[in-house]
Write a protein that binds this DNA or RNA. Structure first.
Lengths: 209, 209
DNA sequence: CTTTTAAGATACGTGTCCGTATCTTAATCG
DNA sequence: CGATTAAGATACGGACACGTATCTTAAAAG
């Protein structure tokens, strides 16, 4: 056993550098979920992260700064690639992905900031500038554009309202029920709202025969 | 000049009874809008109402109680009566009414509670029980049912998703822009989303010729 | 190994809010 | 008018968080 191995055998008690920052980020998101924006404190984040306030103040001047960094680090986002010949399936996949994201601590943080954007305008602005552009990240828009480019959809149908449909309904359902929409509800969103709005109404097509 | 008129001539400095409660209610809603649920305090409400904490504690034990009473008192709601032969116009009227309500302090309070329902479940529950049933108050549903009963709409089209469409889009637009949707946007919601979902697609109808 | 770095622990004065207690006094009642 | 009621003002001890300062010590560097 070399001296290096002996050193490894003793359990580490302190986190340093990136490991510590990662822990603090996770703690910030969890603390936000627990207490909300108005009650987010350095003491709370530090307590939850199991670290000292000094470690936080060495890097950030306020809890909102910690939160923004946490969101940015946890936010990497990939939108599913459309299949090419299954509009309905791809819309469903996109909505499922949205629902999956809604279950993350990051989504909860983004929602909290959006909900209180009038009270914390600087925070909301910083979210846009430092994390994402507000109009980006539409899960269904990628799919719609993909199929319009291939001639499956009349491009004139892809208006801002139609592009917003899927997300608006998912958010509303989630808010009303305080639970993610079911697969059945996602299917209903696609079949009863999105496709009709695109001029591809399943109820009308089956009624053709 | 009688003694009663003399008494009226001296400016009153204190509010009593209902007048005081009304002031406190308004203050509670305004304070909530300013600081949010997490920072709503008795001291804040009292300060804003220009009264003493004792006056609050004589009636309520916590700021959330004040808030609930304020919402209930300010919440009376009337949905516009449909016209009978103007589905599109009535849907627009209903959406305008929703937008008008969204501009009230009460709506902001309801939104705040809904946004933080996971952090304040008791408060959210009390909102449902003491103020309104969660599934009530759908602005467009009254219109849809009215026209279905008259045969203008296939009742099978009025699914929960379709019933939710208008409100979901209005909420999303308002949230994204931090401003009420414009009249043009309301028109787009009706023409591009609601009517197609009802099988009454304007774009398809005009394409008939 | 020693030195350096930064993580962690704690103290401190200040400010805000809580909920209760006490008192003064405007407004209403009889 | 006097008596009663409740509105308003203020004090108080305790809890919590702030941001800064100081010190100890684990971990990394050389």
């Amino acid at each position: 056993m070399t001296r290096q191995e002996q050193k490894r055998a003793s359990p580490q008690t302190r986190r340093r550098g990136d490991a510590l920052v990662q822990s603090i980020h996770e703690a910030a998101l969890a603390e936000l979920a627990a207490v909300g924006l108005g009650r987010l404190t350095m003491e709370g984040i530090a307590r939850r992260a199991g670290t000292a306030k000094t470690s936080l103040y060495r890097r950030w001047s306020a809890p909102h700064d910690v939160l923004l960094d946490a969101i940015r680090d946890e936010h990497p986002q990939e939108v599913a690639s459309p299949a090419a010949d299954d509009l309905r399936g791809d819309l469903l996949r996109a909505l499922r992905q949205l629902v999956a994201w809604l279950g993350t601590p990051t989504a909860a943080a983004v929602a909290a900031i959006m909900a209180e954007r009038r009270r914390y305008p600087e925070l909301a602005r910083a979210l846009y500038e430092r994390v994402f552009d507000a109009r980006g990240g539409r899960f269904t828009l990628t799919v719609l554009r993909f199929y319009a480019a291939r001639g499956h959809i009349d491009p004139a149908r892809i208006t801002p309202i139609v592009a917003d449909l899927g997300e608006a309904l998912v958010f509303k359902l989630a808010l009303d029920a305080d639970a993610p929409p079911s697969e059945e509800q996602l299917v209903a969103i696609v079949d009863q709202a999105i496709l009709p709005a695109l001029g591809l109404d399943p109820a009308r097509r089956s009624g053709k025969s």
